[in-house]
């Protein structure tokens, strides 16, 4: 079994108290508990404070462009659908710059796990507002308050076709570990929106703010009911934050539906050589 040490690269450069610390530990723990090691998992990082985890987490990894981690992750999965693929991204990264990719990754039920650091700000570029910031949130790029209403990542992904949608809080590492594990074990598109205080730039969505507003879904919650899940996800519009698996259903993933991947992965299959079956189409 792997250890935390096996997965640890450089020492993190996150601000003291940043929610990323908790998420970073949770990801490593989840991978260890799933019996994975740095050679058996692929991770794609976006650009941002979250993406900087590229240097702190050992794995076969791509440190992508801002917003583009999801199509990279999908590409890895197409080539090697037996390898678990996770995307470690931020809210600006995934819900702003890469928003289109998110919607379509959900639609395709691509078997990747998207771990979103949702702190409502762009930390790495010093605190401009992110798509999840509450309406009216004042930042350097929105000095009189942001005019747009926030993205609801839970509702958006559920209605777009995601088959696993969860939420956790960076202040609750044990719960976050369980959510990441469940997401990776899920066959199909999984997303874990992690509420994460930015201690340096976001003075509103603090640990205290979240501690007063988060609650765990109880055991009787019906996570496989679409309407219930949509209803539940709308609570965040009222600043109530349910934690747990909001929605989960079993559906064939994208690669499950490709007959050409039934026998083997693309990377391991034999070369196609029956060229006459193609050339004859042109005679």
């Amino acid at each position: 079994m792997s250890t935390i040490q096996d997965f640890s690269g450089y020492n993190p450069t996150w601000c003291p108290g940043c929610g990323d610390w908790g998420i970073g530990i949770a990801i490593k723990q989840a991978l260890i508990q799933l019996g994975l090691n740095p050679s058996s998992v692929a991770a794609v990082f976006g650009i941002g404070c979250s993406g900087n985890m590229n240097d702190f987490l050992n794995a076969y990894a791509i440190h992508s462009l801002h917003g583009r981690a999801l199509p990279n992750a999908i590409g890895i999965k197409l080539a090697n659908h037996k390898m678990p693929v996770i995307a470690i991204v931020g809210d600006g990264d995934c819900y702003g710059e890469g928003g289109n990719h998110l919607v379509h990754a959900c639609r395709g039920n691509h078997d990747i796990t998207v771990i979103v650091h949702d702190n409502g700000v762009y930390g790495l570029t010093t605190g401009q507002s992110a798509p999840t910031a509450q309406k009216g949130y004042k930042s350097k790029s929105t000095p009189t308050g942001i005019l747009e209403t926030p993205i609801n990542p839970l509702a958006l992904t559920i209605i777009s076709g995601a088959t696993f949608v969860a939420q956790s809080f960076a202040g609750d590492v044990l719960h976050t570990i369980s959510m990441i594990k469940a997401g990776i074990e899920h066959k199909g598109f999984s997303i874990i929106n992690i509420l994460q205080p930015c201690v340096t730039f976001n003075k509103i969505n603090t640990y205290q703010y979240y501690l007063q507003r988060v609650y765990k879904l109880d055991e009787n919650y019906k996570k496989d009911d679409f309407k219930t899940a949509v209803q539940k996800s709308l609570e965040i519009n009222e600043e109530k934050f349910p934690l747990g698996i909001i929605y989960q259903v079993e559906k064939p993933s994208y690669t499950d539906q490709l007959p050409q991947l039934k026998e083997n992965t693309l990377v391991d299959k034999k070369r196609f050589t029956d060229f006459d079956t193609i050339t004859k189409l042109f005679i």
């Binding site: 199509p71 999908i74 590409g75 890895i76 090697n80 289109n100 490709l258 050409q260 693309l266």
Partner: peptide, 23 residues
């Protein structure tokens, strides 16, 4: 035995291929 992905836009197109080529 090829996988052809008609992606949502050309940015996704090239990043899909970058991912699969990496793999």
């Amino acid at each position: 035995g090829m996988v052809v992905r008609h992606a949502e836009d050309e940015i996704s197109v090239i990043n899909t291929a970058i991912g699969s080529s990496y793999a």
